[in-house]
Design a protein around this nucleic acid. Sequence first.
RNA 1: UGGGGCGUCGCCAAAUGGUAAGGCCGUGGACUCUGGAUCCACCAUCUGGGGGUUCGAAUCCCUCCGCCCCAGCCA
Length: 583
Amino acid sequence: MTEPENRPTNFLRTIIDADIAAGKHGGKVVTRFPPEPNGYLHIGHAKSICLNFGLARDYRGRCHLRFDDTNPVKEDVEYIDSIKEDIRWLGFNWGEHLYHAADYFGQLYDWAEKLIAAGKAYVCDLNADEIRHTRGTFTEPGRDSPFRGRSVEQNLDLFRRMRAGEFDDGAKTLRAKIDMASPNVNMRDPVMYRIRKTSHHRSGDAWCIYPSYDWAHGQSDAIEGITHSICTLEFEDHRPLYEWFLEQLALPHRPTQYEFARLGLNYTVMSKRMLIELVKDGHVRGWDDPRMLTIAGLRRRGVTPEAIRAFCDKVGVARANSTVDMGMLEACVRDVLDPKVRRVMVVHDPLRVVIENVAESAVEETLAPFFPDDPPRMGARNVPFSCIIYIEREDFMEEPPKKFFRLAPGREVRLRWSYVMKCVGVVKDEKTGAIVELRATIDPETRGANPKDGRKIGGAIHWVSAAHAVPVEVRLYDRLFTVPNPAGAKDGTDFKAYLNPASLVTLSGALGESSLKAAVAGERYQFERKGFYFVDPIDAKPGAPVFNRIVSLRDSWAKAAQDAQQPTSGGRRERRGSSNAPR
RNA sequence: UGGGGCGUCGCCAAAUGGUAAGGCCGUGGACUCUGGAUCCACCAUCUGGGGGUUCGAAUCCCUCCGCCCCAGCCA
């Protein structure tokens, strides 16, 4: 009952199962997602959100949303709202359990005095540089601060005066008195409070001293009754400190910290610093640029919350650093969208075709299902056909290679939902030799039927009637970087050097079937043989839709074509992830 | 370098001493008016290397190798 089916197990579930079996925390599970409101959430955060809220859901516990807002100089309310919106959009709900570390400042302060009184903390006059220099190195122990021996009375007095604003920023800190010789540098008298005469987005000017992460986090967990405090691997070294504070305070509730590996994805960057740089330097159009793996970017691109959740489930949770293939995300997106999205025809790069045996005035309409695999489910639309149509330029080849079964001189293809068409002529530009038009004839017997003589038609292509087509803007998005690990260049090359110049290709000449006149912002479609698309909620205007490609369809022809072009030269061909490249 | 972690298929990831799940990718085939979807089959004699314990080891022990994190008054 606690373990849902289909959800892969992981070490945390194993631990929780054991805790429940042992009656720990009275069998309760309380987790939390503790973002610092200093930036936008990205897919890495989504992993943590799915984990924490997912555990709470599956074990019938609860998950708190707690803003870890202990550093006023980096944080801002603007982020609070975006973070809440993103979590809700992802499909999770913290109910009434919304908290701020800032709301614990009073309690934290009292506890700090308690530690001082117990001789476990002291006010230190060393500045940041001096603290660094006396901390020692990995191989040498640190030296005690000259202020380490201050009396309890003195410390209390000084600490109260710190709080009262008597000292300048950086002039003094409160430090935990632990062990300057500890092999774990985090235990070498870590700072608990620093002076920051900055107003806080939540506590205003009530405080001029602010607790550090290490001092605030575990105690916040304890206050809220968190049972399993889940964070990423880099905090592992902080666990002894987390436990030390809890032990000194001897609080009735004792949370435990567990660490898991953060999500890494290839062909992108995830660090806040790099994301900011991309936005600030204009390499993308903002935090919600569809190429960004921010939650806002994914949403704008058209990726659904279900797909992100499915991805997080599939990726799993473990303690080994890993980099997940972008193809995995793409696969999840296709999986989720495929059964629920209408199919429609859009020609991305139109090539004009004049059909010689159709009268100029003739217009034929065909009712075509929006979802051919289950026609009743999504209804149908009219697809008009006339003597001039456009087909995809790449669906015609003058000299087709072996397995190309689309259009070529003298060859036939099926026009989807319409006739079998034969190419009878190629019109070229006299100067450039470029193909400007095709001449064709249709087999009038083949509308909605196979050729009577039993001849097999190899391919079916999408098309659009010239007289009825609606011009649409199509934005083809591709991975933002050209290399798997842009941030990890051995020679120190800046990650921006690997930006993919084709990460956004805007098609202005694309032509959609007439039903697309009715496209509404926020809708998703499959453009047959192309991919899944989303009507951009911001740039689309009524009657002038803008489509973001969410993800391309799997394309085994593109793969075959590429393999044919670059044959395996002496083995060792690079394995390709799924291709999302513009074609 | 001191400390803390981690190494299971190209990429994720289960298996907790009983004889290597699953997903992504890939390959072959069936089907197909989307080269999509779907279906079927194949895809680690082996768990970083080497020793050892055991009837039996990815799991325990020893040893070596590789990778990641830590010296913010960031989180």
